[in-house]
């Protein structure tokens, strides 16, 4: 029981399993591609060998993670306020991606920056920096570089 609990917390083992799955999928799919064509080696040859080798390496990695170098989740990933900082970054990017197409770049970017900055600055300062930066970037990229940034119904 103790040992299986340790395995669940072992980050290396999980990473190895993800890699093993990834390479197995490629390996499986490579059989749908032709290994040989009338002109010589086909599009399936390279993928099949690469994924096979990666499968073997992932198994060795899992084995190493269990026996030699045990990396537990708790030891390598942050917790508490540090974890919250990381989650804030991830959340802000997700919010940006979900809103930018209808809210427009300026608003989505302001929201992203505000989410991150309000954690360490006073809210009005965070808002001012966020709005200012977003407008500046919008002007530079949209007007100077002519990049078709997503806009809202009002054109910004």
């Amino acid at each position: 029981m103790e040992k299986s609990k340790g395995l669940l917390k072992n980050a290396g083992v999980w990473a190895g399993i993800v890699l093993l799955l990834y390479s197995s999928i490629i390996f499986g799919l490579s059989f749908k591609l032709k290994y040989f064509t009338a002109f010589g080696p086909g599009p399936g040859m390279f993928p099949r060998w690469l994924s096979l080798i990666l499968m073997i390496i992932s198994i060795i990695y899992i084995w190493q993670s269990v026996t030699k170098e045990v990396l537990l989740f708790g030891d390598i990933f942050p917790s508490g306020p540090e974890l919250k900082n990381i989650l804030a970054v991830i959340a802000s990017v997700l919010v940006f991606m979900l809103t930018v197409n209808f809210a427009g770049f300026t608003i989505a970017s302001t929201v992203l920056l505000f989410i991150l900055l309000v954690r360490s600055y006073k809210w009005y300062l965070a808002l001012a920096i966020s709005v200012g930066t977003s407008i500046l970037l919008f002007v530079v990229f949209k007007i100077f570089f002519h990049i078709p940034l997503p806009v809202n119904g009002f054109g910004w």
């Binding site: 970054v89 802000s92 990229f141 078709p148 940034l149």
Partner: peptide, 27 residues
Amino acid sequence: GKLLYPLILIISILGAYTVNNDLWDVG
């Protein structure tokens, strides 16, 4: 860093967006 990293983040997002002018690359 608390000011720098958010700014770099939004500039990276813009940079990724400009590769094909699509959110796909941001993702």
